[in-house]
Amino acid sequence: MSNTVQEKTTLAAQPLAEPLPVHLRINGEDHRLQLRPWVSLLDALREYIGYTGTKKGCDHGQCGACTVLVDGVRINACMTLAVMRDGQEITTIEGLANGDKLHPLQAAFVEHDAFQCGYCTPGQICSAVGLIKEGRAKTRDDIRELMSGNICRCGAYTNIVDAIESVTGGTI
C-alpha cells in the first residue's frame, strides 16, 4: 500500500514585519532594542541581549526553565513577546546576587544540593523568589504545589523544597 501525502502549508512567503523599538529594563540596566514582534522575551534575553542564564526547556510554558520576574511577578519568558514587555522591569537569575554575595535562595540551593545538571535551576530560583513574594505558601505541601510549575528532570525536588524552606523558615 502506498499513497501520496502532501503537507498542508501556506506555501507563499509573507512579508516580514518591521522591527519595533523595545525598551526593556533588565536587572536595573536599560536595554533599547529593535526587535521584530515575533521575538519572545526569552529569545530576546538569550539571543539578542546575551542573558543566557534564563533557560529554554520547552518553549511552550510546560517546564518553567525560563521563569523570570516581570515587575516582580514570576512568569514564563517563553510565552510572552518581548515587544509586549516594552518599558517593564525584568529580573533574571543574573540580577539576583549582590555582587559576589549570593541571594539567600541561591546560597540555599548550593547548600542543600537543590540541583544536579543545573539547567532548571535559574528558573527554580526565580520562581522561588516569586513564590516568597506572593506569600501563599504556608506549608511544605504548599511549596510543593506552588513550585510545580518548574520541572526538574534530575529529580532534585526534595532538596529544592528544603532549600526554599531554609530561607523562609518554614512559613512564608
Partner: peptide, 9 residues
C-alpha cells in the same frame, strides 16, 4: 489549573 507562572500571565 496550569502553574503559578502561567496563572500570573
Amino acid at each position: 489549573g496550569a502553574s503559578p507562572q502561567l496563572r500570573n500571565m
